[in-house]
Design a protein around this nucleic acid. Structure first.
Length: 258
DNA sequence: TCAATTTGACCATA
DNA sequence: TATGGTCAAATTGA
């Protein structure tokens, strides 16, 4: 049975291949009638990234204990901070989100806007102990699907810029399942794929389109596809940060997780 | 026109 | 009373 890392790498490599194909087509057939093929390739890349993120998130849920010890290593370059069991005695509300039992924090030079999920900002506040404002986001499917995932983004340092993104709760929305319904043949990464984006619920079309738009933004660095040598290079910086935030390190072997 | 974002007010808690 | 989190009306932008 394949490890989660292997599955993720397969998905990302497949996406990389599709992105390369797309680049070739765009370089040599910019005005040709291959727009359909280009669209299919773009969708394939989106699908691969979405799948990879799904696997990473699920894996993280199953290996939180491992990640805790992993993240606590002083040599670890990852900035994911898992605090679900760390006693917090700071001043403030007892029901503070940071004291809830399920949250992850990630620090990076860029705020994570595009992490594979669709968020809606619902508040922004100046925090007393910080010079910077904190932004509050809910999953866009909070109402539609009762998804209770939330995140907070706060700049914690000006120079160099450092942002803290804290995730609360789990996504229970059907975003990934929606993408799962698109049939895709992964047997040959050189093949192009036909993917249906029909959705039985027409009321969700707008959301689906927004998600697709969001994910297209994630793959924009495709011009550099030929130079990519690591996931952080062929993913957008935001997605790479999110991948790191969920505890994935391509350098780690499957035995590291078990 | 509609959806997303902003922002001041309100609420819950220590 | 201070503070963090959330709500919802106003504003903005496509």
């Amino acid at each position: 049975m394949k490890s989660c890392q292997q599955k993720v790498m397969e998905k990302l490599l497949h996406g990389h291949g599709c992105a390369n194909q797309l680049k070739l087509i765009m370089d040599h057939h910019a005005e040709s009638d291959s727009s359909m093929e280009r669209e299919d390739l773009a969708k394939s890349v989106l699908h691969c990234f979405s799948d990879a993120l799904s696997i990473l998130i699920d894996t993280n849920d199953h290996h939180q204990d491992d990640d805790q010890s992993y993240n606590s290593s002083p040599q670890d370059s990852s900035h994911v901070l898992e605090s679900s069991r760390k006693p917090l005695h700071k001043r403030g509300r007892k029901t503070s989100m940071a004291e809830s039992s399920d949250y992850r924090r990630h620090e990076s030079p860029n705020p994570i806007y595009h992490d594979g999920f669709l968020w809606r900002k619902y508040g922004q506040k100046q925090i007393k102990e910080s010079n910077h404002q904190r932004s509050y986001y809910k999953c866009a499917y909070t109402q539609d699907q009762k998804c209770e995932a939330k995140k907070q983004v706060q700049m914690i340092q000006n120079n160099p810029p450092l942002y803290s993104t804290t995730y609360f709760g789990r996504h229970t929305c059907q975003l990934h399942q929606a993408f799962e319904t698109f049939p895709i043949d992964t047997s040959d990464p050189q093949d192009s794929h036909m993917i249906r984006f029909d959705h039985p619920d027409s009321s969700t079309h707008r959301h689906q389109n927004q998600i697709i738009h969001l994910k297209v933004e994630q793959m924009m660095p495709s011009e550099k596809a030929e130079e990519w040598s690591s996931p952080s290079e062929y993913m957008s910086s935001e997605v790479a940060c999110a991948v790191e935030a969920f505890g994935f390190n391509p350098a780690r072997t499957s035995s590291d997780l078990s």
